[in-house]
């Protein structure tokens, strides 16, 4: 049943957010500390567990894959509900701070990535969206 997968995903998020909230309180911070990250770890652990296989394979797994495929549309909706006007109106100071922070952080990515064991580049991307448009046209 598709709902089993969706329920597992939802349970992981709720549990993760709760732990993140508790962590925040523990550290005396007014923020959720890593709730989503913890939820992701829970989902990875659940999908690797023997006992929960029935919740992550077959139709149940489709329930999780559906949301994972909905991710980009959700991000598009997220982009459309940002306060872009505030960013543009923030003036020169906000602009300079934002630009510098991003540029310097970008530059640090290859430097810090060199620390520790390296992982392999992912194989080239097959773009399902692009190919379906090509087929459609």
């Amino acid at each position: 049943m598709i709902i089993y997968g969706v329920a597992l995903l939802a349970a992981c998020l709720v549990a993760g957010l709760y732990i993140g909230e508790l962590l925040g309180q523990l550290l005396g911070v007014q923020a959720n500390v890593g709730g989503v990250g913890i939820a992701m770890v829970l989902l990875v652990l659940a999908s690797g567990s023997e006992r929960l296989q029935s919740l992550v394979t077959g139709p149940s797994g489709e329930g999780i894959k559906f949301w994972s495929a909905m991710y980009i549309p959700i991000v598009v909706a997220m982009a459309a509900s940002q306060n872009v006007v505030a960013a543009v109106d923030g003036g020169l100071l906000a602009l300079i701070v934002g630009v510098l922070a991003v540029v310097v952080s970008f530059a640090l990515v290859p430097l810090i990535s060199r620390i520790g064991p390296q992982s392999e580049p992912l194989p080239p991307l097959e773009d399902p969206g692009a190919s379906s448009v090509k087929r459609g046209v």
């Binding site: 989902l43 990875v44 999908s47 797994g61 994972s68 959700i74 598009v76 909706a77 459309a80």
Partner: peptide
Amino acid sequence: IGIMGGGMMRDFGIVSTAFGV
């Protein structure tokens, strides 16, 4: 669009991408 792109759906979507990691 605010619901679809709000924090709740965003986090739900993000967690779902961990499937297969």
